[in-house]
Design a protein around this nucleic acid. Sequence first.
DNA 1: GGCTGTTGTTAGCGCTCATTAACCTGGTGG
DNA 2: CCACCAGGTTAATGAGCGCTAACAACAGCC
Lengths: 199, 199
Amino acid sequence: MPFAEPNTTRSASGGQPGSRRAQILAAAAELFARHGFHGVGINDIGAAVGISGPALYRHFRSKDAMLGEMLTSISEVLLGGALERVRTAEGPLAALHALIGWQVDFALDNPALITVQERDLGNLADSDRQQVRALQRQYVEVWVSAISQVVPAAGEPAARAASHAVFGLINSTPHSAHLDRGQMAELLHRMALAAVRAA
Amino acid sequence: MPFAEPNTTRSASGGQPGSRRAQILAAAAELFARHGFHGVGINDIGAAVGISGPALYRHFRSKDAMLGEMLTSISEVLLGGALERVRTAEGPLAALHALIGWQVDFALDNPALITVQERDLGNLADSDRQQVRALQRQYVEVWVSAISQVVPAAGEPAARAASHAVFGLINSTPHSAHLDRGQMAELLHRMALAAVRAA
DNA sequence: GGCTGTTGTTAGCGCTCATTAACCTGGTGG
DNA sequence: CCACCAGGTTAATGAGCGCTAACAACAGCC
């Protein structure tokens, strides 16, 4: 029996109420990213946080619910951050810069989540998938609007395609990462901006 | 019983010897792209080509073998095409243009294969994975060399990271495709070139 | 100090899946 | 014409999976 963290379960002294859930989701994200949703067993996830198998059902209704919560949470965070950055930016170009910086930071800090989001979206339960898709659509719209203001020459469909292309560029992070974080962020930022301007 | 093509099996009149294998691989690629390797059953693949379930074992040793052949084949085609284009290009800039065009065409013509390659590489049997990884490394080297000649200011590690980023940009095709093929190709080409130049 | 709710445990159920076995069929070459 | 074999069928097998059931331990509260 490998020792897990001393979890003082309740709202008492140490840990927040949902800390265990977060820990489980983080471990699951790592595993899903490496082997795919269907390639990871409930026992694998449990083992990764020091408990074994069915104990996870004390924290999540099902394996599908884990993926659902994981992906809706990402989508909400991404959209919220994007709206916030655009709101506080001064001018369209600054907004685009802020969006790129936000996506770059998120991708560099959460490579596993990025991988899972674009790999296992199709494995979501129907209602979760609808919700995630809706959030993603809104996120894309924020980008389309920002791009259209900086590069009005491109039509709206082109701006939409360009958004997806830039996501692909920035989200390539999990496949490379041979530079240190600072250099990587700067490189991706420059490339993304140049790509958008060429649209 | 839905009618499949009239297959004159042997090396006789109509079809080549391996036509059925190719047909199966194409169907499997489509399914793998949509649901992931572990999300597709042997019966699904069979049904997609009009035969049912275990008949596939007359053509492939195992389900893993299908994925293996699919991915090694892609990698070989990509590498071969890249070498050919670089060889016949006049000057470094022309070589880079040719590489970008090659990757763009391949991604637009084979979105399912692109998806499978970056999603299910981890589900390959060990020996197949080694082979595919080796081919991919060579492919990246071709790009690194081309980029380094056009943008010598970027170091080799940056050129490598830039390669992956450009792959991500171009391979974003399966997630968008709202423009027609010609416009999409041109847009991706422009964006990719601009991104590389900014590296 | 016993009660209770939270968070674990292990055993087992039912289902799906890849793979194999055993059998069928129709075109082709001798 | 007949034997063969490539290519197809359905049934069975064995492993692995998600999930539930039944039970244990331990914290905090009255």
